[in-house]
Amino acid sequence: MTEAFEPVIVGFTCNWCSYRAADLAGTARIKYPPNIRLIRLMCSGRLDPTFVFKAFSSGADGVMITGCHPGECHYVEQNYKAMRRFILLQRTLAQFGIEPRRVRLVWASAAEGHRLAEEITNMVEEVRQLGPLNWPTAPDGVQVTRSVEAI
């Protein structure tokens, strides 16, 4: 396989802020790489670490979790919960030998389309440098989604 490596990033976004930020980036025609697949949650507090393990074990190379800025969560303080889970998750993933930079937590308000696009671009480039994760439990079909040129 000589194709260039295109990282697959799964993004879990909060409905009230970052999902709208991504929307805004779209309507404002701000470019960000198509490597990220966004999944909308009602709040970053819904982020169960299971989702992250599921993403990695199904072939993702990185996971981005996004939510409202501290103090701005629509469910009061669930994003703090997300932050604590995230820190614990990173520590646990490190013990699995998974580079902590493959998971990222980003706060982005609905107005920050630009910043979110930047964060996504940065993450894609950094994961590209880290190389494919290629977790052995992933079905081979994942390879198909790697050729993002076709999308």
Binding site: D48, P49, T50, F53, K81, R84, R85, T92
Partner: peptide, 22 residues
Amino acid sequence: DYGARLMTAVASVIDSTDPAEI
């Protein structure tokens, strides 16, 4: 995923909102 469930629970009961303290 058993560990993920525990992580969820443990993170919920930590009494801090400050990353350094967490």
